[in-house]
Nucleic acid binder design. Structure first.
Lengths: 210, 210
DNA sequence: CACTTAGTTCACCGGTTCTTTACAAATGTG
DNA sequence: CACATTTGTAAAGAACCGGTGAACTAAGTG
């Protein structure tokens, strides 16, 4: 779970389906973007890379296959296609076009999320390793999610606190605005107060001195 | 992966799928053979042994199950079945017939290749060494699938419980999220509730403190 | 069939964590 | 200095999380 927040881009013209999926993904800690058309999706993907694309094949305007092709011109993001049952033709076409997986409608949200996870895992596997950051005498253990402070004692921050510390330590020396921190640590779709950061910082300072 | 070139034999009556898979496998350094019918596949396998057989269940002429049976009469090559969704009957039958794994359609080529690799790996390490993990006074016996607790008594967890314990013990000290645990212990395609993990953990704790 | 066991899901509770808010202190600016 | 802006602190309520009992399903057994 360490590492950057995961984001998915859904390309789907049915708002009801999109809203439903948004719920599931956000509850699971993903950032969720929704594009109504293929053109919009391609444009979005150019602007902000995501961890995976969920691509409905039945789209107004350019269809899913074409969308997939255009995306593949510049992005290697995993693409999961959402297809109607039994459309074998589309399936083969889609896979040739560079899709990574398929889910046939109707699908359960859980199944879809499992596929997304499988795809992400495959993509992330080579790199995934528990790291340890050393900053100013602090040893921040991403595996144990603990911090060894200079005095010798070991602190166990809460989840948010640790994510926050990890982010700051990764970019040690760089000045980060509150909204930058919120974006990365809390997730891009978080609309909370920026002062929340202050409170967590304070909590961290308290825990890390001593 | 030292040794002879890896070769797979696909038994599949759909040329489009076959061509698509050929691309994936050959790009990955496999030799790729394609048979359209069960009879043809059996004959091929007699002539030239392969590292793995990918066997579509829906075949003209003799079906996948029968093909599998005939192959097993003379070959121990790993067989991966390609089945339509929801054909539980076939699945069980296939595994009883001696298949090593199965993949439900539609599948992603990458998923299929991952399965092939897994099967090959298993085949190459014939004697799965029964290991024993020692963590915090617990002796976890992967062969017997039992646990000797510090007090001296020996516990026999259920299958899931043991797999869960084994995974945690292998990564002793590391913090694992529920979804990480689900992915590894339950399997990548598991769609269940994350709280299931809690319940099994509780059960383990109960059994291990004694 | 009744009965057992394993596995999964759910609802609830109590404690922790997170977020917001309000205000004080510090800092910047004319 | 007077004022605005930013930062630190404390407290309180909301939201969340982990532990638990229990219901339920599925599979195996006598």
């Amino acid at each position: 779970m360490t590492g950057p927040t995961r984001a998915v881009l859904l390309v789907e013209d049915d708002d009801a389906i999109a809203d439903m999926l948004r719920g599931f993904f956000e509850r699971d800690g993903y950032r969720f973007f929704h594009a109504l058309t293929g053109e919009e999706a391609v444009q979005r993907l150019r602007l902000r890379p995501v961890s995976a694309v969920l691509l409905d094949l039945n789209l107004p305007g350019i269809d899913g296959i074409e969308t997939c092709r255009r995306m593949r011109e510049f992005s290697r993001a995993p693409i999961i296609m959402l297809t109607a049952r039994d459309s074998e033709v589309d399936k083969v076409l889609g896979l040739e076009m560079g899709a990574d997986d398929y889910v046939t409608k109707p699908f359960s949200p859980r199944e879809l999320m499992a596929r997304v996870k499988a795809v992400l895992r495959r993509a992330e596997e080579p790199a995934a390793k528990p790291r340890i950051l050393e900053v100013q005498g602090f040893e921040i253990d991403g595996g144990k999610r603990t911090v060894a402070v200079p005095s010798g004692s070991v602190v166990e921050p809460t989840a948010r606190e640790f994510d926050l510390l990890w982010f700051l330590a990764e970019n040690a020396g760089l000045v980060m605005s509150r909204s930058q921190i919120l974006e990365v640590v809390w997730g891009y779709e978080y609309f909370g107060e920026t002062r929340t950061v202050d409170v967590h910082i304070r909590q961290l300072r308290k825990k890390l001195q001593g």
